[in-house]
């Protein structure tokens, strides 16, 4: 009940925020929406399947660069087409990488995903003619639902139509993921996480399911990546860097990976916390490190776990 009530209040606040006349806070939340979509996918891989990727930023970057290439070089300005293309590209890239990675579990899986992430980072950094190297590629403002919205300045575009568009994508992504988690496929993934040998003895195709989860996570990552680069107008190699993947894991642990909405909460709190701490001290990474240590030691189920514990205590 508490979680549901807080969720409704938070949802209403997110819908009403652009009307409150606080454009700074409104634009601040835009990356949180992108990260939340990516984390919903990452959590299917970790929370449901038990595979922790340290290279998931690869797919965020893939989404970002797909948006940059389509809007900047090929003149495709429809955000719906960009999102669809990013999802397709991510799926195509994820299949061969996933085929290699899901042969391994635990730290070996994590290290292999990290390796692919760094390979992609190097590719983006070194292939200047194709990717713009360290300068990255510009992302032009896309049309939303066929509307150019050229009469709006950037702030009005981002805090108005794009804000609600991104929030809408997040809601749709959350509903799709909720359906996936509650489906037979979702149960198969959880059985694999709990005991892969037992799942296999009951007829579950373990590698096939792990690969499917990897590809779905990649698609969500790329969609999140598109939402991330539209506000900044830039796709750069740091999107694929390993510290970016580390931030994703941080957000997941912060929000809590054993609750469906944990990743969304993690993304929102991470972005707001980062902004607050960065405005107070230049040693914000130090503060974040301490927070991560406290979470892992004292609250392994993350913020959502805390809310759930309160619910359990209240009932």
């Amino acid at each position: 009940m508490i979680v549901r009530a807080l969720g409704l209040i938070a949802g209403a606040a997110l819908v009403l925020l652009p009307l409150a006349g606080v454009p700074y806070t409104t634009t601040l939340l835009l990356p949180a929406f992108g990260y939340a979509v990516a984390l919903l996918g990452l959590n299917l891989l970790f929370g449901s399947t038990g595979l922790l990727s340290f290279g998931h930023a690869l797919f965020i970057a893939l989404g970002g660069y797909t948006a940059a290439a389509l809007t900047g070089r090929f003149g495709v300005r429809s955000l719906e087409l960009v999102l669809l293309a990013a999802a397709l590209v991510a799926a195509l890239v994820a299949v061969p990488i996933g085929l290699l990675c899901v042969r391994y579990v635990k730290i070996y899986f994590g290290m292999l995903t990290l390796a692919f992430g760094m390979l992609f980072y190097s590719f983006l950094y070194k292939f200047y003619a194709l990717t713009g190297g360290d300068e990255g590629m510009r992302v032009l403002r896309p049309m939303l639902l066929g509307r150019p919205l050229e009469h709006l300045d950037t702030v009005a575009y981002l805090t108005g139509p794009f804000y609600y568009y991104a929030l809408g994508v997040l809601v749709v992504a959350a509903l799709v993921m909720r359906r996936l988690v509650g489906s037979p496929f979702g149960l198969s993934l959880r059985s694999i996480r709990e005991n892969a040998a037992k799942a296999e003895s009951l007829g579950i195709g373990v590698r096939r399911c792990r690969l499917a989860a990897f590809v779905v996570a990649a698609v969500f990552g790329a969609i999140g990546g598109v939402l991330l680069v539209v506000p900044t107008g830039l796709a750069d190699p740091l999107l694929a860097y390993w510290t970016h993947s580390g931030n994703l894991v941080f957000m997941l642990l912060l929000g809590g990976f054993d609750h469906f909405l944990g990743p969304v909460l993690g993304a929102l709190v991470f972005i707001l916390l980062q902004d607050s701490v960065m405005s107070l001290t230049s040693y914000w990474r130090f503060v974040f490190g301490a927070i991560l240590a406290v979470i892992v030691i004292f609250f392994p189920r993350g913020l959502m776990g805390l809310l759930d514990a309160r619910r359990a205590a209240a009932s």
Partner: peptide, 27 residues
């Protein structure tokens, strides 16, 4: 050999879904 965190119903459902060829239905 069990699925520690899964309920009894979910454990049996994993097998039932496998028999019914529905284990990978995503939606």
């Amino acid at each position: 050999t069990i699925f520690p965190a899964l309920s009894v119903a979910d454990t049996l459902a994993v097998a039932a879904l496998s028999r019914l060829r529905r284990s990978t239905r995503p939606f």
